[in-house]
Design a protein around this nucleic acid. Structure first.
Length: 763
DNA sequence: AGGTATCCTG
DNA sequence: CAGGATACCT
């Protein structure tokens, strides 16, 4: 059913949009959640796609190497405190945004996935950006994880297992030193103590703790026991952390010694890249994307100053890379490396330094990416595994990048949940945010903040589930589920699928409501709204307009149900999710191949004139088959909706018809009529006038005589049945229907003409 | 399981 | 007249 081409197109467009957002992401902490979503999405993309290419440089190896090296080398560093703190506060203010709507996708296209260094052709600024986002996302994610964990009673650090994890944890402990180093999320199965029960129940505990009404008697003891353990672990981790910070500081100095000693002219790109990469931890410069590396040579000083403001965690990455690079260089050119590491600003050998710089850059990038890959993989694995039971329980505890769940859990493509959509989707969800530090962030709009926690909750309704849900809704609506379709012009739809912000935020912008009132009479019946005052057809037109509105309302209704999560946003019509659009699209394609009819006289909707025509046809045929309807409404593009609507029309006609019949039959009986012979239907009878008023209001059509006969027969049937007292049977009318349905006569050929009304009404 | 028809409601 | 529910038919 869903057209895959279109789906992929949709996805592609969504993707592109996201990329654009990422580029446009504005300065620092005020970066929009939408923009931030781009970050992790790319991050994960690369994490996935780099897995292969990065294998030669597994982050673990390097990190452990780094650890070893620095453990041996370092005793302590003086300046850690202030810098680290500043960097961290900075980081924490960034974090919620990053995690707020960070996204991921497994469907990354190869082009987008390609590593920056894997593609020498990439522009420097792009590399910068990628790395920047990379780092930002990583930091934000880890911090968020830590925060989430810090709110939970939980588990124990598995003593030694993964270095990079310890790194991250250590680094983050600095943010929240009071937080017990709970690692339930990352706890390895080989957890030192009581692994099975603990790891499985720790999450439960977390959730339960967040639900005031839920008592955790069964876990309280366990938690208490663990608290002591956690205290101990915390101390250890603190120590580790301090060590790490010292090491980082030293590596940082070393790192910049190297670069200060290099010739600037050719290294500006690299230098700027690095500086910006780091400098953007606290401020994101949109200008970067359009300026090359060269014009920022003057920033070097500033950048160096900014170094002191950095989050030490980033130096960890830098240091990692540096170490690797040094190792590489050492393998080939020991003397130079020695000189490099020692010589600050003492004119390095120009050309060789140039080459080294480039290689260093590459190595750095590779290292960063490999490390990122592993970290992300780890986190994703840990977080993706346990599906969390109820939404309420789910969202407070884990501040995971939201889109991660749908992505990793089911591998489906969440791409049509773009940032905007998600903003909308969760804008009206009231989410208790346990992370006060996040909600109190300056410059963070509330909804965006909420989103940080809400997204994982909502998106757990996976895209595929969304789909199913849609179809359920549709089928629940039954044959009329697609009534709104005719209003979805492919052109408009594609416009809205192009995700220009307004139409995207409002999946059914006004133009979409343009109902194709192309008149079978030839003249267009005009616009779609506000033209129902003056024309002779005004009643029909306004009715149709009303029906249109009903459809719209129905669509919205669907949307609300579909989202299943929100109190209605009063007055907001922009709440339909993109997935709804997608489903609409699918149905559109299902019911009709898109828009070969836009230019022709075949229309995709039923016009008031079609209704009129149908009413006139009713004079001939009370029970037209769907095939017959298709024959006589050849100017409409038939699909399930149209067919159903037409059938429904005739059903309504019949309903009215039989109601009138019964009414007049009873009335006659009440009037004392006793014989069927006295029951007649003539053009001046009350019954006929009622019917004519209904089906031929303008009285511009000459009702066929046959109709009078059939009406008379029907009336008599009713009369007899009522007189016979058959109406006690709940289904007594069925017999009458059976009779009447055989009385259909041929509809004149002229009704097959699209312009039949014109011809009929003026003859 | 899907298409129709009817009933009921708005 | 449309929606929704229900029932029947296939």
């Amino acid at each position: 059913m869903p057209d895959h081409d279109s789906d992929s197109l949709l996805n592609r467009q969504t993707k592109r949009r996201r990329v654009d957002i990422g580029v446009k992401r504005t300065v620092g902490n005020t970066a929009s959640a939408a923009a931030a979503s781009n970050v992790l999405r790319k991050l994960l993309k690369r994490a996935n796609s780099y897995e292969d290419t990065m294998m030669p440089f597994p982050g673990t190896t390097i990190i452990s190497q780094l650890l070893k090296n620095n453990m041996a080398k370092n005793g302590g560093g003086p300046e850690r405190g202030e810098r680290g703190d500043r960097g961290l506060s900075n980081a924490s203010s960034d974090a919620p945004q990053e995690d707020a709507c960070s996204n991921s996708s497994h469907d990354s296209t190869p082009q987008e996935c390609l590593s920056p260094f894997g593609r020498p052709g990439l522009a420097p600024f792009e590399i910068e950006r990628l790395n920047d986002e990379h780092l930002r996302a990583k930091r934000a994610r880890v911090e968020n994880i830590i925060r989430g964990m810090s709110h939970s009673p939980s588990v124990v650090v598995p003593a030694a297992s993964r270095h990079e994890r310890d790194h991250e944890m250590d680094r983050d402990q600095e943010i929240d030193l009071d937080c017990p180093p709970t690692q339930s999320q990352q706890q390895a199965p080989s957890s030192p103590r009581g692994g099975e029960v603990c790891s499985s129940s720790s999450r439960e505990n977390k959730r339960k703790q967040r639900l005031p009404q839920q008592q955790q008697q069964s876990f309280t003891q366990l938690v208490c026991q663990r608290k002591e353990q956690k205290q101990e672990e915390r101390r250890q981790l603190k120590l580790q952390l301090e060590d790490m910070q010292k090491q980082l500081r030293q590596l940082q100095e070393k790192f910049f010694q190297i670069y200060d000693s290099t010739d600037d002219s050719e290294h500006n790109d690299l230098h700027n890249e690095l500086n910006n990469d780091i400098g953007n931890m606290s401020e994101d410069s949109p200008a970067r994307s359009d300026t090359g590396g060269d014009d920022r040579g003057g920033d070097d000083l500033r950048s160096d100053n900014e170094m002191s403001d950095l989050d030490p965690g980033h130096f960890l990455d830098r240091a990692r890379a540096l170490l690797q690079e040094q190792a590489l260089l050492a393998g080939r050119e020991k003397p130079r490396r020695e000189g490099l590491s020692r010589s600050k600003g003492q004119g390095g050998p120009g050309s060789s330094m140039h080459a080294e710089g480039k290689q260093l850059a590459e190595t750095l990038k590779q290292e960063l990416n490999s490390a990122m890959t592993q970290v992300v993989d780890t986190v994703v694995k840990v977080f993706a595994k346990p599906p969390r039971p109820t939404p309420q329980q789910a969202f407070p505890s884990l501040s995971i990048p939201p889109e991660r769940f749908p992505t990793t859990v089911n591998g489906d493509n969440p791409n049509f949940h773009t940032a905007n959509q998600r903003l909308q989707c969760f804008g009206d969800v009231i989410i208790p945010n346990p992370l006060d530090s996040f909600t109190s962030m300056p410059g963070m709009p509330g909804p965006t903040n909420d989103q940080t926690e809400a997204l994982p909750l909502i998106v757990r309704k996976t895209p595929s589930e969304h789909h199913h849900h849609h179809h359920h809704q549709s089928s629940a609506v039954g044959a009329h589920g697609g009534h709104h379709h005719p209003i979805l012009h492919p052109s408009s739809l594609s416009a809205s699928m192009g995700f220009s912000p307004p139409s995207f935020r409002h999946p059914f912008p006004l133009p979409l409501m343009g109902y194709p009132f192309q008149s079978p009479l030839g003249g267009p019946t005009g616009g779609y709204l506000g033209r129902d005052r003056s024309s002779p057809d005004s009643m029909d037109l306004s009715r149709e307009t009303t029906s249109l509105r009903t459809k719209m309302a129905s669509v919205h209704h669907l949307g609300h149900h579909h989202r299943s999560c929100s109190p209605a946003h009063p007055g907001s019509t922009a709440e339909l999710s993109l997935s709804l659009i997608k489903s609409e699209c699918s149905d559109l394609q299902d019911m009709a191949d898109i828009s070969p009819y836009s230019g022709s006289n075949i229309q995709e909707g039923l016009s008031p004139n079609h209704l009129k025509k149908a009413k006139l046809m009713f004079f001939y045929s009370r029970y037209p088959s769907s095939n017959m309807l298709k024959m006589f409404f050849s100017d409409v593009k038939f699909n399930r909706c149209i067919t159903s609507q037409l059938i429904k029309w005739f059903s309504n006609f019949r309903e009215f018809y039989y109601i009138q019949m019964e009414k007049f039959a009873r009335q006659s009986i009440n009037d004392g009529i006793t014989g069927v012979e006295e029951m007649g239907v003539s053009r001046d009878s009350e019954l006929f006038r009622a019917l004519n008023m209904h089906y031929n209001k303008a009285n511009d059509f000459e009702v066929p005589e046959r109709f009078l006969e059939v009406a008379e027969i029907t009336l008599r049937e009713f009369f007899n049945a009522i007189v016979a007292g058959k109406d006690v049977d709940p289904s007594w009318k069925k017999a009458i229907y059976k009779v009447i349905c055989k009385l259909d006569s041929e509809v004149p050929e002229i009704f097959k003409s699209p312009n039949c009304l014109q011809e009929l009404l003026h003859e």
